[in-house]
Design a protein around this nucleic acid. Structure first.
Lengths: 199, 199
DNA sequence: GAGATGAATGAACACTCGTTCTTGGACACG
DNA sequence: CGTGTCCAAGAACGAGTGTTCATTCATCTC
């Protein structure tokens, strides 16, 4: 008798997309299931046909993101090659990927604290693997003498923070395009590790 | 008839301290007034004798932090001096201050989104003033030829993100002490702006 | 056509949220 | 001693929380 559900397709993927955007904007705790459902155009109870809980929805987003990030990075950064080549590839990949997926990146970075124990256990190793790639590049470069870095770990973490920060301020509507930004980061990072390839 | 309130002193400052820690750990939305009151050892209703609302409590924390940060920075970074001297002073100040006050810093960085319009209007200018200091140092250095930076704004934001990131991983219990970390950041930043003073 | 499945609904669950209000004890000052 | 101020307690407010449930419809398969 009541006007019930209209036919829908792809609700699950829409839920992912809207939840990602809302979580990134307001934080996990700042978004209710009603907010997400309302954004998609369904009632909150219907979410549970697709995800068993709010926490599972968050883990789904973060896990998928980390896997895609890791895959894409390993495709973009050659395992062989000089440290300089690999560092340039890593920085270019990281900056452009983060420009393209700012919500996913911000979520994975910020909402580790909202994960329960098992969620965190699933995600932290992936992040560590990603970061280890940069550390290895720096170590190789330092060992072969082309990089000058005093504290490898401090520099690696510092560079990652610097690169990831692009999501905070970059807007496509701004005056700089992606390639210009990536080039600026590449130059700055190369200088930061004491490597001036133009000379 | 009921056992009512025990005498207390300094409740307001205790509320600030506990709220700061909890907000930094779980996020503004992830902390309730009952959580804060329980952490201090009073009931939630008693908070309203000291702060008119949760939002006011957040603004109080962020505004006080930004003012103290700005004051301390202006005391630590000489207005006159060479760009190199000022850059070194700025980096050393920023890193050590952020190591000492990680909760305040994280809060001010993350919870801008939880501020209402007027709170944001009060805080954003202070942060801009702080960041402008670094930008000016980079501009002066670039103008006098001692720094090599392609995109001044990108580099300034990148360096700030790099330095602020120290709050994420630094622990006093770790293997590195504050001075070693500060020195590593100083060296990395000097190299990043294309300035190698040891040569 | 019959039946299974997927996906939506609205109502309800038991809590928790920020906030308000009344009450009353502790202490300072006259 | 009386009065006023400060600040705590406790109860209550209405609204919102994540989640569960029975139900209903549309669509696919046999």
């Amino acid at each position: 008798m009541t006007l019930t559900h209209a036919p829908r397709t792809n609700t699950k993927e829409e839920l992912r997309a809207h939840a990602r955007r809302l979580f990134a904007k307001h934080g996990y705790e700042g978004v209710s299931m009603r907010d997400i459902a309302g954004s998609v155009g369904i009632r909150q109870s219907a979410i549970y046909n697709h995800f068993p809980s709010k926490q599972h929805l968050l883990v789904d987003l973060m896990l998928n993101h980390m896997k895609r990030l890791l895959d894409a990075m390993q495709g973009a950064v050659p395992a062989s090659g000089t440290p300089v080549e690999r560092l340039i590839a890593f920085v270019r990949f990281h900056v452009t990927y983060h420009i393209d997926q700012p919500d996913d990146v911000f979520l994975a970075y910020m909402e580790l604290r909202s994960l329960d124990t098992e969620g965190r256990a699933a995600i932290v190793p992936l992040r560590d693997t990603y970061e280890q790639t940069l550390r290895t590049i720096l170590e190789d470069g330092a060992a072969s003498g082309v990089f000058t870095v005093s504290e490898n770990n401090v520099v690696a973490r510092g560079l990652l923070a610097m690169l990831t920060g692009v999501t905070v301020w970059f807007r496509d509507s701004g005056s700089l395009d992606r390639d210009t930004v990536a080039a600026a980061y590449i130059e700055t990072v190369l200088q930061a590790v004491g490597c001036t390839p133009n000379r």
